[in-house]
Amino acid sequence: MMRLPRFRYLAPASLPEAVKVLGDLGPEAMPLAGGTDLVPNMKRRQQTPANLVGLRGLAALRAVSGDAGRGLTLGAMTRLAEVERGPVAAGWPALARAAATVATPPIRNTATLGGNLCLDTRCSYYDQGEEWRRSIGYCMKREGETCWVAPGSDRCWAVSSSDTAPVLCALGAEVTLLSRGGERRIPVAELFADDGIRHLSRRPDELLTAVHLPPVEAGQRAAYVKLRRRGSFDFPVLGVAARVRLSAGGTVEAARIFLGAVGSRPQEARAAADFLVGRRLGDEEVIREAARLAAQVAKPMQNTDLTLGWRKGVAREYAARALRELVG
């Protein structure tokens, strides 16, 4: 049986206490939300915080408020199973869809939206047991020197594998980060950095407390298409999230496209989005060209499931499928 390493467990009773504890302990502590990412990582000794700060008792992190007209604020501990349904499904179906594709039903019953955003980056040289990693001399992300995906590289190429992150980026959502020093609210896209190791701009003393969905605009359409091997369990090897605002006549007025799982953070396909503006989605030529442009930002590495060449090759097709979904 795989066992967790020993750690000190703390269960703060309030948000202020939680951020105080995180502030006091700094990098020695990690917050524990659903645990569906952190617990396996700890069992494989990829992450071995000396202290776990359990957030279960903090009801404030479960609060949901707002609606499609005003925008919705979801406490970071909102479970993915809840994101699949309710107000999110009604107003932001692409996000609900993304949440519904994460892992498996029991994991979605436990995993949280905040946790999915803060998901550790993944890599087939890193998501392995301690002995396996010792057998390869470890890797840059933990205990080693080399990035085995790109041995000449001076950075880590582990992959952002969240399904909800690219959708939240495309929707223009924001997150609140709370620390002893106060709180700051930043666009979700700015939560991520292009580095497999330091992939979050969240500081260790900060707690991600809430996700803010902007109001649904007239003519807003969004889609999420996920590429993976099986219909369950699997992380994305490509996720295409697109959000557009259409005029009454069906012309694209605004567009944002993000690709997930093809870099250390969600990759924005700006050229594709810019190309769409002023054009009509019903035109298959438009979709093909936008998909071609979008696929250009996909820079997959050989560190996930399925072969690199194939993933590169089908990115265009999957981008096109996401865009076709916008047509409705």
Binding site: S124, D127, G129, I136, P151, D234
Partner: peptide, 29 residues
Amino acid sequence: FRRLPPKLSRALVHQAPSMLEYKSLTFHE
């Protein structure tokens, strides 16, 4: 199996010794 670049490493390891990455059919497939 995965063999790392011989110049850098002698490693020869199972590519995916896990239920997640060793793929088998779910209800869906």
